[in-house]
């Protein structure tokens, strides 16, 4: 039996009075890649952002439900969001490196967490960039601005930056949606190389991407979790009519 690293139960989320998530129950296996698919506005990104408490930034959002990460309640009042977000990292849709050098970008999360020697930092930066499969492209230009890179490279630097704090879970919110197909496939390769090293949860609009990289797939619609199963099963032989309609392109 595989180990559950993150379990969520009966997740309700409100934007003001409007309910955006209607009781989601989802579990994530350790070191699996789970894809969240569904039409725009189905709540998959909203759900993803609840997993590392990014909704804390917005006053009007209320989150209810149980989120257990390694047996610890994420929304417990004494949870340190800083430590939590180092363990559950996030990569956004737009490649968004800071306007600093590549090195400073990757070292950012480590530096904010604790004081490290130059040698330790160098090592972490190199390891993270290698993990994100971009080391060979940038190793000679570590002190160039990260904004001078191409979109795909920027996104992989963003992944390296998230990996540098050594997270157990990586949340990816449509990480390839803003990229051209070649860059997108490089980012996908990066994710494939990272599988078995950490748990990844990815929101994607591309069914093809979900089928290429994910172990399990969850289909969201209108704030409900419609179907959750092995990717093959969901995409080839879904149990529910809505899922069938969505993946065959009848709507969405």
């Amino acid at each position: 039996m595989t180990q559950k690293i993150l379990t969520t139960e009966n997740v309700h989320l409100y934007y003001g009075k409007k309910e955006a998530l209607h009781g989601i129950n989802l579990d994530f296996n350790k070191n699996d890649i789970t894809a969240l698919i569904g039409p725009s506005g189905s709540g998959k990104s909203t759900y993803l952002r609840a997993l590392n408490r990014m909704h804390d930034l917005t006053d009007s959002v209320t989150v209810n439900g149980t989120f257990m990460f390694n047996g610890h309640d994420i929304y417990a009042p004494n949870t340190d969001t800083v430590a939590l977000r180092q363990k559950i990292g996030m990569v956004f849709q737009q490649p968004n490196p800071f306007p600093f050098s590549i090195y400073d970008n990757v070292a950012f999360g480590v530096r904010t967490a604790e004081k490290k020697s130059k040698a330790e930092l160098d090592e972490i930066v190199e390891k993270s960039l290698k993990q994100a499969a971009i080391w060979d492209e940038v190793k000679d230009n570590l002190h160039k601005s990260a904004l001078s890179l191409s979109g795909g490279q920027q996104q992989r630097v963003s992944i390296a930056r998230a990996l540098a704090t050594n997270p157990e879970i990586l949340l990816l919110d449509e990480p390839t949606a803003a990229l051209d197909p070649v860059s997108a496939s490089k980012v996908e390769n990066t994710m494939m190389q990272l599988r078995n090293q950490l748990t990844m949860i990815i929101v994607t609009h591309s069914m093809a991407q979900a089928s290429r990289i994910s172990d399990k797939t969850a289909f969201f619609m209108d704030g409900h979790l419609v179907e959750f199963n092995h990717t093959k099963k969901v995409l080839l032989d879904p149990d529910r009519q809505e899922t069938q309609d969505y993946i065959s392109g009848r709507f969405g």
Partner: peptide
């Protein structure tokens, strides 16, 4: 940009950092 703030927090920075 707002996403600088979001990604800084998502990387485990405190508000002051």
């Amino acid at each position: 940009p707002r996403h600088y703030r979001e990604s800084a927090l998502a990387l485990g920075a405190t508000r002051w950092q």
